[in-house]
Design a protein around this nucleic acid. Structure first.
Length: 351
DNA sequence: TAGGCCATCTGGTCCT
DNA sequence: AGGACCAGATGGCCTA
């Protein structure tokens, strides 16, 4: 499920509250256990340092007065918890808590980094941890498939791969990033990814991903959607405008002006159903030459909109045409078109 | 109100 | 011995 950043703020707040509750930096009062419980369990604590047990001289384990038939405990004798020991224990515990907090913060930072390189990053609608991991797994798998097969997948399969095993809200979010209707690419419901992962091997993916995804019954969530920005696809690195796939964009972006816009680009301008399948199999090998590029042609508007994604050399714009029916009309902005081209190139370009 | 998600505390275990 | 890592417990916040 997606969640808002308010949670984050709440957590920060709770941290502050803790500080208030325990000025020394730790041991907030907790519901069930609380202070009493801690005190209780402290009595069972085996303390380590006995050097400074000044006052009360080590009453070594006052013999359990309940000397009934209980077997004597083995092991090192428990020492009575003096105030000094208690103090040391608390300090130790506080330090351990602080370390654990930092550790978890580091983990969350790493997760946040992952969110940013995975498709569908939104500052306002964060993916949950588990969904981020799932999406990342799917993303890695999908990209690996492209590299392994050397073939361009169709968009539907690619999106299906991304959404495999994701929750419905997350799937909707991904769909929103692509301005797709989830119903159009999520025909079946399947519980979890590993079960559907086809066996590895060249024969496993004859030209498309065989991903299945959880079924969707709901439409798109309300805006704001996240975006499928180019940097997600290219793992864009600072100072490396196009990322590792830069050579693929020769003659595509350069001719069209500046490279990419900063992160959080506007949503892709594809709307509506992809009711007809792409015909990218018609693209011949010759079409996938160095200068291969997609360009999106937006339909005339309305439900009857028709858009075609063209692939092919510059001489013949209709080479490798990908027909997409039902696209909502869109007044093509060169900016959007550029983004779309880049993204589609990243997805479909034959490596 | 239930359920999901999260941060934090805590004690145990393993490693250096 | 101390730190890292882990999993369970707990409570807060948010949404349907």
């Amino acid at each position: 499920m997606t969640r808002s950043v308010r949670d984050e703020q709440a957590s920060v707040e709770s941290e502050e509250q803790q500080e208030l509750r325990s000025p020394t930096g730790g041991e907030p009062e907790r519901g069930g256990g609380g202070e009493e419980e801690e005190e209780d369990h402290l009595h069972h604590l085996e303390d380590d340092d006995d050097d400074d047990d000044d006052e009360e001289e080590e009453e070594e384990e006052e013999e359990e007065e309940d000397g009934e038939n209980k077997p004597k405990r083995r092991g090192p004798k428990k020492k009575k918890m003096t105030k000094a020991r208690m103090q040391r224990f608390k300090i130790r515990r506080m330090k351990a808590n602080a370390r654990e907090r930092n550790r978890m913060h580091g983990l969350n930072d790493a997760l946040e980094s992952l969110r940013k390189v995975v498709p569908c990053y939104s500052k306002t609608q964060k993916l949950s941890k588990i969904e981020t991991l799932r999406l990342a797994k799917n993303y890695i798998w999908a990209l690996s498939e492209i590299l392994r097969s050397g073939k361009a997948p169709d968009l539907m399969s690619f999106v299906q791969a991304l959404c495999k095993g994701l929750s419905q809200p997350t799937t909707n979010l991904v769909a929103g990033c692509l301005q797709l209707n989830p119903r159009t690419f999520l025909p079946e419901q399947t519980p979890d990814l590993p079960a559907h992962l086809p066996p590895a091997g060249p024969a496993a993916y004859p030209g498309h991903f065989s991903y299945q995804s959880p079924g969707l019954t709901a439409g798109l969530p309300s805006p704001p959607y996240g975006t499928m920005e180019p940097s997600h696809i290219f793992n864009q690195v600072k100072g490396q405008p196009y990322g590792p796939l830069e050579p693929f964009f020769d003659g595509v972006l350069v001719s069209d002006g500046p490279a990419f816009d900063p992160p959080l680009s506007p949503p892709l301008s594809i709307n509506g159903n992809f009711s007809s399948s792409f015909k990218h199999e018609a693209v011949t090998a010759a079409d996938y030459d160095k200068s291969f590029s997609f360009s999106v042609h937006y339909g005339g508007g309305g439900a009857g909109g028709h858009a075609a994604i063209y692939g092919g050399g510059g001489s013949n714009p209709r080479c490798g045409e990908l027909q997409v029916d039902g696209l909502m009309g869109y007044d093509g902005h060169s900016h959007h078109e550029r983004l779309m081209n880049a993204q589609l190139n990243a997805i479909f370009h034959d490596s």
